[in-house]
Nucleic acid binder design. Sequence first.
DNA 1: ATTCACGTAATACTTATCGTTACATTAGCA
DNA 2: TGCTAATGTAACGATAAGTATTACGTGAAT
Lengths: 142, 142
Amino acid sequence: MKRNSRLSLALHTLAHMAGNPKQMRTSSDIAAHMGTNAVVVRRVLGRLREAGLLKSEKGHSGGWQLARAPEKITLADVYTGLEEQLIARNDLQEQPVCSVEHTLYFRIFGIMQDMEQTLIDKLASTTIAEISEAAGQVHPNE
Amino acid sequence: MKRNSRLSLALHTLAHMAGNPKQMRTSSDIAAHMGTNAVVVRRVLGRLREAGLLKSEKGHSGGWQLARAPEKITLADVYTGLEEQLIARNDLQEQPVCSVEHTLYFRIFGIMQDMEQTLIDKLASTTIAEISEAAGQVHPNE
DNA sequence: ATTCACGTAATACTTATCGTTACATTAGCA
DNA sequence: TGCTAATGTAACGATAAGTATTACGTGAAT
């Protein structure tokens, strides 16, 4: 078990979808490809649906699809859609009383905020369509 | 309990030490101030001793001290001394077979490596002496 | 010698994440 | 209308990382 594999799972799945946006994929099929469980897939992709990146349909012939063109979905969209906060997570406890800790808190907090934004900027420069193309489409149906 | 409080603990402790470098501090006293256990303190500070930032002495009147002037210890020294890898940790599994995953892996890996270096650069611009001064030395003996 | 401090192994505790099961809901299809 | 296949979610268990605690060995000062 890895810590925080949600982003990998999401990016990997959407990059595949970018290779064939029309195709409807079930959480079960996706889970098999990713080596995990269908419920886990639905949990992760559910967040991206709320973020407007994916559509899901219930019932027979239901499943998952991109909600918009893969050229218009960046890696940053996926990252922020998951509300990950990989860097600037607030385990920098509550407001400290000690003046040294207080000073450190704000210095580090500021740096982490900058870093978080830098990461998003870097991720924003690549779309899932580019990933799909770069991968060479070895499996055009996936 | 917080996840990865080692860096906070280390920075906080060293910033205090910067305010009065001559003073010898016991892991017990430090632990009391930080709200943790003496063994935890020794574990964390032990890494910084190996990194050459601290000296420790056993026996009566033993304890911990900075190994060099606080003006010559940056936040980056502390970070790298702990070998933290806050960002670029390798929970990006082994070499993937799937071409899409492979492509993603290298793209993300490259970004994370850049981020890690960026973080170190940012931390390197501040010394623990500066933190101590900015904190206003409310408690000159700590 | 005794005491005080570090060094470290072993173990338990806590928390986040992931995996699994179970069941309700919804939509197509015969 | 029932059956099947899919999502949506709650509940619970399993695992791993981090931290806390206990215990004991070692070294140095008094």
